[in-house]
Computed example of a mutant assay.
Amino acid sequence: MMGYFCKFSSRLSERSGVIRKTHAGVKSFARDQRGVSAVEFALLLPVMILIYAGVADVSRGVDANRKVSRVASMVGDLISRQISVMPAQLDDVFKIGATLMIPSGTAPEIRVSFIKVEAVKNSPNLTVKLDWSQKTAGFKESSNRVDRENKQTYLPENLRQEPMNYIRVEAQYTYKPLLSAVLPDIAMEEIYYISPRYSDTIRYGNGK
């Protein structure tokens, strides 16, 4: 009987030792901070990537919008220096303007219109007339016929006050965000007006 009690006590002591070691191991594991930084970094990494990509998108978008404005102004300035233009010359000017968007993978779409503000005969009123226009193949116009026709001769009110001729340049560009999987493309447009520099009018093609 005494031998059995000794064996039982020995086994109980061994089990108690195992329990104490297990408890000590659990407490030690709970206090161990060595892996916390790695876990936190793994949780924060996707958020950090989204923030970085968002900031980069905003910066690229602002830069693209500024370039679209420069395209419109440069194309208008080049044409305003001419006395006459041929369709092929305007195509070359469009290509020159597109180089401002480098290193973007897409070129802007451009339309140039020559608009005249003329006095109506025997009347104090003025009328706005489209003299000529040329655009790139991908230039997007309104699907509504009335809106399309109105835009062809559109001038701001302050440019309609006296007889004058204007070059109107419209530059369109579609910005594709870095986060294109979650953000839509952004359509950008800039309209620029300038008067001819060296003559009252600019002839188009072989027109007199």
Rank of each mutant, 00 (worst) to 15 (best):
S123D: 07
R70L: 10
L90D: 04
V85G: 02
A64L: 00
V58T: 12
D92A: 13
A107M: 11
V62P: 05
S84C: 14
V36Q: 00
P124A: 03
A42C: 09
R66H: 12
G76T: 04
V75P: 00
N122P: 04
L44V: 15
D57C: 08
N122S: 11
I51R: 09
F114H: 05
F29I: 13
P103F: 07
A119P: 09
V58H: 11
M74L: 15
E118K: 07
S37T: 07
A88N: 05
A42D: 08
V47C: 15
Q82L: 13
A88P: 08
V26G: 01
F94T: 02
A53T: 10
R34S: 00
D77L: 07
I96Q: 06
T106E: 11
V117L: 10
S28R: 03
R31A: 07
K95M: 13
V39A: 00
I51S: 09
I110R: 01
S104A: 05
S104Q: 05
L44Y: 11
S123F: 14
V112G: 14
P103W: 08
A88C: 13
R34K: 02
R31G: 06
A38L: 07
G54R: 11
I102F: 15
V62H: 10
A107L: 05
D92P: 11
D91N: 06
V68W: 01
D63M: 12
D57L: 15
S37G: 12
A38D: 02
V85H: 03
V58S: 14
K95I: 08
V93P: 03
R70E: 09
S123R: 08
E40R: 00
M48F: 08
E109I: 08
L100M: 10
V36F: 03
T22A: 11
F41W: 04
S73M: 09
F29R: 04
M48K: 09
